[in-house]
């Protein structure tokens, strides 16, 4: 009767609300319910200059993972990447931090290498390329020392 009708309505409301919360946090907030998938590799950069957790990792413009965390190790920036399970990275791959467009956000680009050896999970990308320091570049250009 009335009780049941109210309960069904409340159940419906809570369900829709939780669906909204779930959409926001899983889709946009990148909270993974089933635990993280794929595998993790790290790369040390002299500077990450604007890269942040959540930035995309791409090969040839295709997203193959996300930056999971950025920390400091030995006065270098240690970037932890979560790579999709199907994607294999050669040991001589080069990780470089790039900018989308002139003032766009930073992302991490991986240039595949030619080695037969594959970086294992929890392995490390040795070849890295620091982001172009735009200001430095500009001042060099202005003062003619390029």
């Amino acid at each position: 009767m009335e009780r049941a009708r109210v309960n069904i309505a409340v159940g419906l409301f809570v369900l829709i609300g939780i669906a909204g919360l779930a959409y926001l946090s899983i889709q946009l907030g990148r909270v993974s319910l089933l635990g993280a998938t794929g595998y993790v590799v790290t790369a040390d950069f002299p500077s990450v200059g604007g890269l942040k957790a959540g930035s995309t990792v791409e090969i040839a413009g295709v997203e193959i993972g996300r930056v999971e965390a950025i920390g400091l190790a030995d006065y270098q920036a240690r970037v932890t990447l979560r790579i999709h399970a199907g994607v294999k990275l050669q040991e001589d791959s080069i990780a470089s931090i790039k900018t989308k467009g002139l003032i766009g956000e930073k992302y991490l680009r991986i240039s595949p290498g030619g080695s037969d050896r594959i970086i294992p999970p929890r392995g490390k990308i040795r070849e890295v390329e620091a982001p172009v320091d735009f200001e430095e570049l500009l001042s060099k250009y202005i003062f003619g020392r390029i």
């Binding site: 409301f13 609300g17 919360l21 959409y23 926001l24």
Partner: peptide, 10 residues
């Protein structure tokens, strides 16, 4: 309120 806010956002 949090549930309604989530619905509003989505």
């Amino acid at each position: 309120f949090p549930l309604m806010t989530a619905i509003f956002d989505v």
